[in-house]
């Protein structure tokens, strides 16, 4: 037979045991547990705290009076709306600041770019455009001459679109040569004149150039020398173009 523990007896005393009926049966059957439980009951039964002194019926009102002054009323929670004036004012201030910054930037830009733009004449602008397209033209021409020289070195039948490319470059070259002829640049004028003759020769050559044809052109036209001239000119034109671009950027700042 398993005796009741002290905890089980205390639980039983306060009617909190899960198996109340089992405990009752055991206490009736077991003299030892019954005696212990009786002692526990006597002990706990003797423990009585002092009875609270009766408070008057208005005790609650007295308590309320004593604490009332120390209490601060709660602030009623207001429904939050985005369109309350502090938020609106903040948003308006942000917008004003952004608009002001934008306008100030515009004014500063105008104030600093007008004098520079005034120094950039239409003639200089035209020169920059000419330099840009001329650089491109010289680049294409250089590539054509390189292809031509390499084809001649390989000594085989050449099946490259040199003729079509030469015809396109020939048209452009005439225009550039005429434009440059008006300026005082004899080196560039001479080089474009030389290039035009080479392009004319290639453009009017048969569809398939033989190695002999190329060798003849190279020799008669001195394409190696022209290539060197073109490279020198390209370097010069590139520098002029960069200078012109730098001036152009400075003018727009």
């Amino acid at each position: 037979m398993k005796h009741l523990t002290e905890e089980e007896m205390i639980e039983h005393y306060y009617s909190e045991d899960l198996y109340k009926a089992d405990a009752e049966i055991h206490l009736q059957a077991c003299r030892q547990c019954s005696q212990s439980y009786e002692e526990l009951g006597k002990l706990l039964g003797s423990v009585r705290g002092p009875e609270p002194l009766p408070r008057s019926s208005d005790y609650g009102a007295q308590v309320w009076q004593s604490i009332q002054g120390a209490l601060q009323p709660y602030q009623a929670k207001q429904k939050r709306s985005f369109f309350q004036w502090p938020q609106l004012a903040y948003a308006a201030a942000c917008l004003l600041f952004l608009a002001g910054a934008f306008l100030a930037g515009r004014m500063w830009e105008h104030a600093h770019t007008k004098p520079l733009l005034a120094t950039s004449t239409p003639q200089q602008t035209k020169e920059r455009v000419v330099l840009f397209v001329l650089d491109n033209h010289l680049d294409r021409s250089e590539r054509l001459l390189v292809q031509l020289n390499h084809a001649g070195a390989e000594g085989e039948q050449v099946d490259l679109p040199l003729r079509g490319e030469a015809q396109q470059l020939l048209t452009d070259n005439r225009l550039y040569r005429q434009s440059v002829a008006q300026s005082n640049d004899p080196l560039l004028t001479a080089a474009l004149d030389h290039l035009e003759r080479v392009l004319l020769e290639v453009a009017n050559s048969p569809d398939e150039l033989s190695a002999a044809d190329i060798a003849r052109i190279e020799q008669e036209m001195n394409t190696q020398g022209l290539l060197f001239q073109i490279r020198v000119l390209r370097t010069k034109v590139s520098e002029q173009k960069l200078n012109a671009q730098a001036i152009g950027k400075g003018a727009t700042l």
Binding site: G60, A61, V63, W64, I67, Q68, L71, Q72, P73, Y74, Q75, A76
Partner: peptide
Amino acid sequence: GDKDAYGPLVE
């Protein structure tokens, strides 16, 4: 915001 409503609770 009605502080006085606490009175009945206290009482």
